[in-house]
Design a protein around this nucleic acid. Structure first.
Lengths: 221, 221
DNA sequence: TCCGTTCAGTGATATTGTCACCCAAGCCAC
DNA sequence: GTGGCTTGGGTGACAATATCACTGAACGGA
């Protein structure tokens, strides 16, 4: 019941006063969601603020023309604050969140969220800091999309997607969605990478062969 | 002294309880800034939350390569919440805010801001709603930059920039910054618009001749 | 095995971005 | 005024990226 242990996994929550922690625990519920589920978006409107304990959520947007772009990811230890903000602004909201792995999360109902905002300076700071981080993420996306070269962006994305292993199970179309471009473009750049010995490819799989070279490309202006 | 009249100009603040309004007024200061001033950005770090009474602030970002893109504008009756969020997240923050007109604003110090967040549910909602609106603005920018055609985007931007008069005092370079593209591209599209009779041009000035046609182009997918 | 679906490759073409210039308009000192 | 200087804008050549219209290969069921 009084399992406050998950709170300790969140940097900004650790410093909460004990009574606030207790309040947080009693008012929230831990939930488990399988991979590939839409946790919010058109058609799935949560009334909760989510704190991710395990797993990862990908937030992406679909344009009118049907094309997608990945906006950012919420990792374990982070919260998905933008969701709540967008819920407040009763606007048509085109982004959606999809679990990429199985996800364990703590759901805090809107009412409890508001009480916490009122009662705890630390919680307010935690929330606003989380906002700030997301916003700088979005600024970065805008900068990349507007001014970045595709090969550079793809190199960087390959590295961050393949942080665990050198094997990457993904399709060209998925990578196109990552960067908000077309599949053909990804195919051509990947073929170029292959010719240069950066990667090996097979259907639905990419193997990083030369991380240093890829990293060097990703760093170039 | 107890001039609470400015509060009435803000939708979300009107409903504040009287004592909160009084608190807001005593703790804040009204300030006036001439046009063309950088109100925040690298080198100008405010410790205040700003509520715009009059005028307009343009928020733009400069990429590493030195190119600019306009992110959004803060108009009278809105607040510049992202600024405070980004201040909290002690990260290198590349965006800057520039007054486009003379600006009258109410500055609320961080401490007062925090007390208001603690004491008033209405204020919290106001702030979070403001965040949400900005974020949807940014989503829109990402969508446009990633998937929009520049003639369509330029047509839309011309209309919104020329909301008062059909005369628009701006350079091709400034329009390029609006959309995050290059001057040459703007020049070519504008020449095309001119040939089609949409606009007339002279040095540093654009005149809208056929708003309906421009609007039609701006609406096209 | 056949069939349907998903994934990837490719040439042609359109759009947009980059580079390297040029010229013209306005400004200011003299 | 005249001559330079700065800023705004035009243009051609080319590179990068996007779009379109296909093709075939790989995989998974029936």
């Amino acid at each position: 019941m009084a399992d406050t242990v998950w709170i300790e996994r969140f940097h900004g929550l650790r410093t909460l006063p004990e009574p606030v922690k207790a309040q947080l625990v009693t008012e929230s519920t831990v939930m488990k969601v399988p991979a590939g589920t839409a946790v919010f978006g058109p058609g799935a409107v949560p009334d909760n603020l989510l704190f991710l304990l395990n797993g990862r959520v990908r937030v992406q947007q679909t344009s009118e023309s049907g094309r997608d772009i990945v906006l950012y990811r919420v990792e374990a230890g982070e919260s998905c604050v933008l969701t709540t903000a967008c819920l407040l602004a009763h606007e048509p909201y085109s982004a959606e969140g999809v679990t990429e792995t199985e996800v364990t999360a703590v759901a805090i109902p809107r009412g409890a969220f508001d009480r916490l905002m009122a009662s705890s300076k630390e919680f307010r700071e935690f929330v606003l800091t989380a906002y700030a981080r997301r916003i700088t993420d979005l600024f970065r996306v805008i900068d990349d999309v507007a001014f970045g070269r595709i090969d550079v962006r793809l190199a960087g994305r390959l590295l961050s997607l393949a942080s665990e292993s050198d094997e990457l199970a993904t399709t060209h179309q998925q990578l196109a969605t990552e960067l908000g471009t077309a599949r053909e473009v990804i195919s051509r750049v990947l073929n170029d990478f292959q010719k240069r010995g950066f990667i090996a490819q097979s259907r639905g799989k990419i193997t990083l062969l030369d991380r240093p070279k890829i990293a060097q490309l990703a760093e170039s202006t």
